[in-house]
């Protein structure tokens, strides 16, 4: 469970960057709006997690069982982690430019686009045999808290240290999934 939470935490650092950027580029950000935006982001995050989970369950008979599933899951999560870390490393410096059109309706597509990796991780969790019910509440809590913190931080301090945050999140996911994969390979050998 701890490993699952840590993977989710690593994943949520990517969302943290996005919400921090938004906090840094809105003119006014009230407490009410921070809570609403965080709830919306959390909702989209959970939906994509559930969709990924559902996709894995749908194709349950297609994929090989047991060790192979765990290996595939680990590689999927590792791939997501590598993508996040590399994207953060290669990203150009962020220009804090006023976004006067930001609202719930622009946040929703942004959240879906950002959470494609969450869908992949959802598939990974399903293949790892993690129960969706056991992960939904912690995932919701982590996502909400990270989004709220990111918006607050971005608004008061700007979008700082994005590269470091992204690399840290991606690296955490890579390390944890590599550890799982390593255990699987060892068991197979």
């Amino acid at each position: 469970m701890l490993k699952t939470l840590l993977i989710f935490f690593g994943l949520s650092l990517d969302g943290f960057i996005v919400m921090m950027q938004k906090g840094a580029t809105v003119r006014d950000l009230s407490e009410k709006n921070k809570i609403i935006y965080s709830l919306v982001y959390m909702a989209v995050n959970l939906i994509t997690l559930a969709v990924g989970y559902g996709l894995a369950v749908t194709f349950d008979g297609v994929l090989p069982d047991g060790t192979a599933q765990i290996a595939i899951a680990s590689m999927l999560i590792m791939a997501a982690g590598i993508y996040i870390a590399v994207k953060s490393f290669l990203n150009r410096p962020f220009i804090e430019k006023l976004d006067s059109n930001f609202n719930i309706y622009t946040l929703i597509p942004l959240a879906f686009f950002t959470n494609i990796k969450t869908m992949i991780v959802g598939i990974g969790f399903a293949l790892l045999g993690v129960s969706l019910k056991s992960v939904i509440l912690p995932a919701a809590a982590v996502t909400f808290l990270m989004s709220y913190t990111a918006l607050s931080f971005g608004y008061s301090h700007g979008a700082a240290e994005q590269r470091l945050i992204g690399i840290a999140g991606g690296t955490l996911m890579v390390i944890l999934s590599a550890y799982t994969l390593f255990k699987v390979i060892l068991a197979a050998v």
Binding site: I95, E96, K97, L98
Partner: peptide, 8 residues
């Protein structure tokens, strides 16, 4: 942001 879009 009331006066400028960004630092540029």
């Amino acid at each position: 942001y009331n006066h400028f879009e960004d630092k540029y």
